[in-house]
């Protein structure tokens, strides 16, 4: 759209004021994470760090190192499983017509909108019964299951756009449905696989509710829960808390910065329409 020069200047001004508003919390977090404990004082939160120190980071790493590892151990398998199951479910709903398939799919999708509180008590009981309560694996199973709706949806939206002729050509070459999926569909699914992978990586990394309910031992807690516990202690060690918050944010931030396109694609598919 062509606009006048004066309004362009106004727009630049507004756009960069907005940038300031978005970035100033980052200033707080980075500034205070770099202060030594001795300088972390109540009235000095806004004053730039005088004596740069990595004390806070060192201590945050000591306290949270194990939890970061736990988060990776959790997030990587969950993302891969979500891709695998999501692709299969999404493909079938997109390309195989059977009775009530639309209704059933709607029921699947509803699963991603429910408040998880409404399944929490039975979930804890069930995990307990099958012996996965209090283990990272229990949290993993939980995330894979409740990640199915969104992953299936993303794949279904993608597969729905594939022309039927492409698949039917494979059939003519003598492949069955499973063969078509493996030899024709999977190889061209990479973009969506990345979207799902990134989406699940971020949302599982950032999850708090399931983690806080299902993992109790500090040694197996993911980073979000450990960070909250760190922040809940009574001695105000801002530098450590801020450093910890930044450490917890870095993996998803990196994913966002380097794979932003896919991240946004995943984000937008959350509103159901592809």
């Amino acid at each position: 759209m062509i606009t006048k020069k004066s309004s362009k200047i106004l727009k630049y001004t507004l756009a960069y004021i907005a940038v300031l508003l978005f970035v100033f919390p980052l200033y707080v977090i980075i500034n205070n994470s770099l202060k030594p404990f001795a300088d972390v004082r109540i009235s000095e939160m806004w004053i730039p760090a005088q004596n740069l120190s990595f004390e806070g980071y060192a201590e945050a790493f000591v306290k949270l190192g194990q939890n970061i590892q736990n988060s990776f151990m959790l997030v990587i398998p969950v993302s891969l499983f979500s891709v695998m199951f999501g692709a299969i479910i999404g493909f079938i709903f997109a390309k195989v017509k059977f009775k009530y398939s639309n209704t059933i799919f709607a029921l699947v999708i509803f699963g991603m909108f429910i408040p998880y509180q409404s399944i929490l008590i039975p979930l804890v009981r069930t995990m307990n019964t099958i012996g996965l309560y209090g283990h990272l694996s229990g949290l993993m199973v939980t995330h894979v299951i409740y990640g199915l709706p969104i992953s299936s949806l993303m794949f279904r939206n993608y597969y729905a756009k594939l022309p039927d002729e492409l698949l039917e050509a494979g059939m003519i070459d003598g492949l069955r449905l499973v063969g078509v999926f493996r030899k024709v569909v999977v190889p061209i699914s990479l973009p969506t696989m990345v979207v799902v992978l990134i989406w699940q990586f971020t949302s599982v990394w950032n999850d708090f509710l399931f983690a806080v309910v299902l993992t109790q031992r500090p040694s197996i807690q993911p980073i979000t829960v450990a960070l909250q516990n760190l922040a809940g202690t009574q001695v105000i060690e801002w530098n450590v808390q801020m450093a910890g918050a930044l450490i917890a944010a870095i993996p998803t931030l990196l994913v966002y910065i380097f794979l932003g396109k896919y991240f946004i694609q995943g984000l937008l598919s959350g509103s159901v329409k592809g």
Binding site: M73, S137, M140
Partner: peptide
């Protein structure tokens, strides 16, 4: 493999 490892570790 990662999963089985974690399960094994858990138990």
């Amino acid at each position: 493999m990662a999963t089985t490892m974690i399960f094994a570790q858990g138990t």
